[in-house]
């Protein structure tokens, strides 16, 4: 059986809220290392990969591999019934028909319980190769969100170019062009505002802004975001969570002329 207690229901609420417009029905794969999810969007252009490690829960118990097939709209309806500060416990039997969610208020004796009917989801897992990325950019998640939103006002696509001088986000559209360039930057007092660019070779790739703006819905999960790029491979956008858990998005590039 599965029994996993999250100190803050808000974490799962934010994760599901961030991915529910990209993917609809997902398997939450539970085993003794934690709760994982991998799902592609309908167009097979973007992929969500979530890992909530066992250490993110206290306690965490999962005796055998259980796939919980859940419709994210249904899950969101139930998660909205939780207060942000509530403690959340996920429970399921070994061959479950439902997943049980219990919300406990830390301040009162209120206890609420919901069951969500599970679905049989035949989901293909893609093998994501271990990649040594040519460029890794760590920046404030709010800054990345702002750049994507600003450039989307002008164009459907953004070119991301990383060189030793910095990272340039540029676009061109019907009304004109736009570009934002960031250089490495260290803010001693507010390290969350740092921009770090680790580069082994220059990279230039083009991506759809519609997807990037969608990924940025995860900005509330982490003050920083990591962009990993190599020429001619999908972009990795990673929001790190506590206890080495993470929410990752992969986006296939636009290629050719």
């Amino acid at each position: 059986m599965l029994e996993a207690r999250l100190e803050q229901a808000n974490l799962l609420k934010k994760v599901v809220d961030a991915i529910k417009d990209l993917v609809q029905d997902c398997n939450f794969d539970c085993n003794d290392s934690g709760v994982a999810l991998q799902a592609m969007d309908n167009s097979h252009v973007a992929l969500v990969s979530m890992m909530l490690k066992a250490e993110s829960f206290s306690p965490f118990r999962c005796d055998r591999n259980i796939a919980l097939g859940i419709n994210l709209t249904s899950l969101m309806k139930v998660l909205r019934c939780a207060q942000n500060e509530d403690i959340l416990t996920l429970k399921a039997e070994d061959a479950p028909d439902v997943v049980n969610l219990v919300f406990e208020s830390s301040e009162s004796d209120r206890l609420s319980e919901y069951d969500i009917k599970l679905m049989d989801i035949d989901q293909e897992h893609l093998g994501i190769p271990e990649t040594e990325y040519a460029a890794t950019i760590t920046m404030p998640s709010a800054e990345f969100q702002r750049i994507c939103r600003d450039l989307m006002a002008l164009s459907e696509s953004v070119a991301i170019e990383a060189t030793k001088d910095g990272v340039k986000f540029s676009c061109s559209g019907d009304i004109g062009n736009g570009a934002v360039t960031l250089r490495s930057h260290t803010n001693v007092e507010k390290p969350d505002l740092n921009v770090e660019i680790a580069l082994s070779e220059p990279v230039a790739l083009t991506f759809s802004l519609k997807y990037l703006v969608n990924f940025c819905k995860a900005s509330g999960l982490s003050s920083t975001v990591k962009l990993c790029l190599s020429n001619e491979v999908p972009l990795l956008v990673e929001y790190g969570l506590a206890s080495n858990s993470y929410l990752r998005f992969y986006l296939a590039p636009k290629i050719g002329d």
Binding site: T206, P234, A252, P253
Partner: peptide, 14 residues
């Protein structure tokens, strides 16, 4: 204009 690739081109199916 460049064409949108899909992930199947890069990530292996099981």
């Amino acid at each position: 204009p460049p064409k949108q690739a899909t992930l199947g081109k890069f990530f292996a199916r099981p």
